[in-house]
Write a protein that binds this DNA or RNA. Structure first.
Lengths: 339, 339
DNA sequence: CTGTTAGCGCCTTCAT
DNA sequence: ATGAAGGCGCTAACAG
């Protein structure tokens, strides 16, 4: 099962076979333009490399070049229902930049997080991406300052590290406005736990959209529940039992929407005819499988990952520091059948 | 933001500071027992390393030791609704073995898959884990034979590579038997696409459980649908409209169960009083949020990942070849409230 | 345009 | 019990 036995082929082997110096080989294999090798020998070198089955030795290259070509991603995201998309985005972008992404799944344990970063630094990653499962404030171990670091879906408590976060307020606005454009005026908002960046932003967006449309936000139409189907069910019940019930719900998360669906159907009401619903998060597993399929606002995980890797990449390529500050990326509407 | 400026501290620095040779430092830092350093200097070395903030250089070590300490995981799993748990399991185990797991997310594209493996081999990974999102037959590019490789959640078309798969048949048996023990005799089975290892195994388990309990399996109680909520809804409707309708459903996937819930509720029936339901897959996002919460059979992703890394690890530690063949790991019942 | 010469940071056999 | 010397595979100045 293992192809050892024969020693791996090195640059020297191909140099010898072609009858040139190792330098020449190195130059063409890394196709650098700052030196010249005759096209003829160049071709011979390439062919020899191919024939011999040459495979570069990353560690040797890293050691000599003082550049690992590695980028680290530390995240708790694996435990979270969200955001493998973030990892995917970061990986896509990194590969395109010729970097290899080292992923450390931390389970959110700070102790382990620190250990993971230490390991990553031993691999001499050139930069670090830290992605969290929920939009919140974080404080990284000081070791994170040893290398350019960017935060994704979270922000630095001390404001020192650059970060990329979703535009929650814009998302809330988009969702609400979509409902307004569908003709709704009484829009209930079943929000998630209020002490979060997500809840605050989405609420603000909801209010702004209403106000812009000339309808004054009523506190009575807003409830906060825990972000679960049960929470959504309860919240929807409360709003549905109002004398003048809303004709639409904006749900703070797709899970909440899942529960709201139950409450609505239980009353013999239909979606979207009697009550329209829009969610938030665009969790495929839920949104695309609810009946009817849920119209929702997407958290731009893939793009956040992409942007993170990209900003890191350009910073590394240029000089050093990432442009500091916080960049926010939009939350697009994903239309399905619940409005 | 970046801690360059001062050159990184090397073994030589600490050797010089303590007044010993680099060899001594190397020995204590790798705490090897095959050589001896006086406990006193040993302590001094350790302290100096600490004070200087020494950080081993993985690439240098890999180059000199001819051993990267890296293991590769290539998977399409990120796109799949399942199995980040597999990644987590493999990572946990690898770290405990002192190996670093390099993850390559391939999106299932074979071309990219090959490129990813090539990159992994350039990093000189000592072994490869290949994890698929669905239980199926795969054929890896020949390059996978260059290094010990193990398949997770899939099996080799040519039977050459060792693999780890879930016990689908056992899972189907467990689910059905659970229903039987709850007193059900007429159990409908809404299975997923029939041309899959999952569907075949689960069906076989269903039949065996029935037979063992003395009830003869009726083909009329088994339907196949696509693995979605819509499919589940349709399948459940068909079975529910039977003259002598089943009192329980075994659903081939949780998504199917999601749709079955709708069909059941739509008829004013209640779960589990009128109709009990058990799913398969244990997709947290669905199973734990359905109302009532879904009792289901779990695919042992975490354990499969763990076992994969473990088998690879012991193989690498010992001589070379992984013990060949296919190991199957059990699918445990996760009881919630739908039975 | 091509080759020579040093290392990169660490491990390891062999002498002391 | 400890240290000296050589090499892992590759890159990058600098000469030729």
């Amino acid at each position: 099962m293992a192809g050892d036995g024969a020693r791996a082929v090195r640059m020297g082997d191909i140099a010898q076979r072609v009858g040139v110096s190792r330098t020449a080989v190195s130059f063409v294999l890394n196709n650098r333009d700052d030196t010249s090798v005759s096209p003829a020998t160049r071709a011979r070198i390439l062919r020899a490399a191919e024939e011999l089955g040459y495979r570069p030795h990353a560690a040797a290259r890293a050691l000599a070049a003082q550049r690992s070509g590695l980028v680290g991603l530390v995240t708790e995201i694996v435990t979270s229902p969200f955001g493998m998309e973030t990892v995917k985005g970061a990986q896509d972008r990194s590969w395109r930049e010729g970097k290899f992404l080292l992923i450390a799944a931390t389970e959110g344990n700070p102790e382990f997080e620190q250990a993971a970063m230490e390991k990553l630094l031993e691999q001499r990653v050139e930069g670090l991406i830290y992605a969290s499962g929920s939009h919140r404030e974080v404080t990284l171990p000081p070791i994170a300052l040893d290398v350019p670091t960017i935060l994704v879906h979270c922000f630095d408590a001390h404001g020192r590290l650059p970060s990329i976060v979703p535009d929650e307020e814009g998302g809330g606005h988009t969702a609400t406005r979509h409902l307004i454009e569908a003709g709704h005026r009484r829009i209930g908002f079943i929000n998630l736990e209020p002490d979060t960046a997500a809840a605050r932003g989405r609420l603000a967006g909801y209010r702004r959209a209403l106000t812009e449309a000339g309808v004054v936000p009523e506190d009575g139409l807003v409830v906060s529940v825990d972000s679960s189907a049960d929470g959504g069910y309860l919240g929807a019940c409360a709003l549905l039992d109002l004398a003048d019930r809303p004709t639409a719900f904006f749900c703070g998360t797709d899970r909440i929407a899942m529960g709201a669906y139950d409450a609505i159907k239980e009353r013999g009401l239909s979606i979207p005819a009697d009550v329209a619903v829009v969610g938030f998060d665009n969790q495929e597993l839920i949104a695309a499988y609810l009946r009817p399929k849920l119209t929702t606002v997407a958290l731009p995980f893939h793009e956040m990952g992409t942007r993170g890797a990209e900003m890191l990449g350009t910073a590394l390529a240029a000089g050093q520091p990432i442009v500091p500050g916080q960049v926010t990326v939009g939350c697009p509407l994903v239309e399905r059948s619940s409005v």
